[in-house]
Structures are given as structure tokens and as C-alpha cells.
Amino acid sequence: MLSLQRITKTFGGVTALEDISFNVESGAITGVIGPNGAGKTTLFNIATGLYSQDTGDVYLGGQNISRLPPERLARLGMIRTFQNVELFGQMTVLENVMVGLHTKSKSGIFSCAFKLPGQIREEKTIHRRALKWLEYTGITDLAGMTAGSLPFGKGRLLEIARALASEPRIILMDEPAAGLNSRETMGLAGLIKKIRTSGITIVLVEHDMELVMDVCDTVVVLNLGHKLAEGTPRDIQENPEVIAAYLGDG
């Protein structure tokens, strides 16, 4: 599904990522872990088109997507969430999810301003589908609230609902459990598994080992910009290099 090949990225002389390659299997949950500063978020930003890599290529379903902007990637079915939850704070929860359907609709400025018949129909579809995703993630009762006033955990769910609304082939989640309490994390694990059963490929960057070991099929370990190991959660837990990297880090 997603394939990163020989990605290297430096920031002002400091190497953030060096020669990273791995594949994400279709329909699987892949975890990317590593100590702080390992380059996980940078890797995400490159894969999703926010940064451009110095060398290397990214493929999505066989298509080279290196250097495509994020808005194009969304149309190709790749969507991401953010570590700090990037919501549209002044819009309602429902409207946030409706923006998620942007790529699934096509009315332009003209037909929206003049409310042409096609646009009215489309708007109804957007509304109906957005409600469906709120229900899917269990936040229907918050639909009318302003997104900026949500508690963090609910904001996280909304961000996932918004991502799902675009009906992606693959979702990249940047530390979805960060800032959640243990009950919320359990709920999140359930949601992630539920998303997988609907056939969507998932990539997680995560600190919460318990979550990673619980949900992931494959785990990739980064350390100081290098790929340290790749394998099943069990392999990774027993890999001496990985243990050393984590212990060495603190």
C-alpha cells in the first residue's frame, strides 16, 4: 500500500532521517516507534507531503507520490491526524466532519452561491454522511458544539471522524494516544481495530507501547534517524538492539 524508499532528510546540516525504507502492508496496522528525536514525526510529515525529503521516494499503491502536496494526497486516499490535534476550532463538530467530505464533493463557488439543484442534493449527502461518521466514532451528541471547546480526548475522536469522512485507503495517525487517559486509550484501541476491519490501512506513530503491541501487526523502530528494526510486536520486544536503544535513552 504505502512504500517508503531510501528517505533522507536534513535540517540545516542536522540529519533527521537517513536512508529509511519500509513497506506498509495493505489492510494491516503498522506501528512506527522510537525514542524522542528518532525522526518519527518528520517521517510522517514527509509521507504526507508537508515536508519534502532530500532524497528517496514515497509510493502509494504503486504510484510515486514524492513531492505531491497534501491536498493531492487526500484525493488519492491518504489522510493523517496530528499529534496536537489540528481541528477547525471555530467551526462546529459536525462542520469539521463535513470538511472531511471535501474531496467527496465537487460543487464550486458558483453553484454554492446560487444553490443550484445539484449543490442542494450534494449538501444533503454531505450532512447525512457526516452524521454517520459522528455516530461511528461515538460523538453524535457533540455535533453542535464548537470544536475548539471540546475536551482533548473528544477532539482526538473528532479528528479521526473527520479523517474517516474522506473515506481514505490509508490513515496515518501521529501519536493518537498522546494526552489520553487509560480509559480513552482503551476506547481508541477498539476504534483503531474497528477501522481496520473496514479495510482501511493504518499507520501509527506512537509512544504508548501497550497500544502498539496490542493493535499493530508490524512494528518499525527508528532511532536517531535510522531504522533499527522491523518485525512483529513479539520480535521487536525481544530485539536486543531495540531494548538497548530504549534503555540507553532513559
Binding site: 508537508l50 497534501p70 493523517r80 496530528f82 489540528e86 477547525f88 476550532g89 472531511g100 471535501h102 474531496t103
Partner: peptide
């Protein structure tokens, strides 16, 4: 309005 609130999120959502 999404652009107003978070340009990066709007782009990621395909805007």
C-alpha cells in the same frame, strides 16, 4: 473557514 482556523489541516483534508 477551515483555512482560517488551520491551513495545514485544511490541506491535509484535501482543500
Amino acid at each position: 473557514r477551515a483555512i482560517h482556523d488551520s491551513e495545514v489541516a485544511a490541506r491535509v483534508m484535501g482543500v
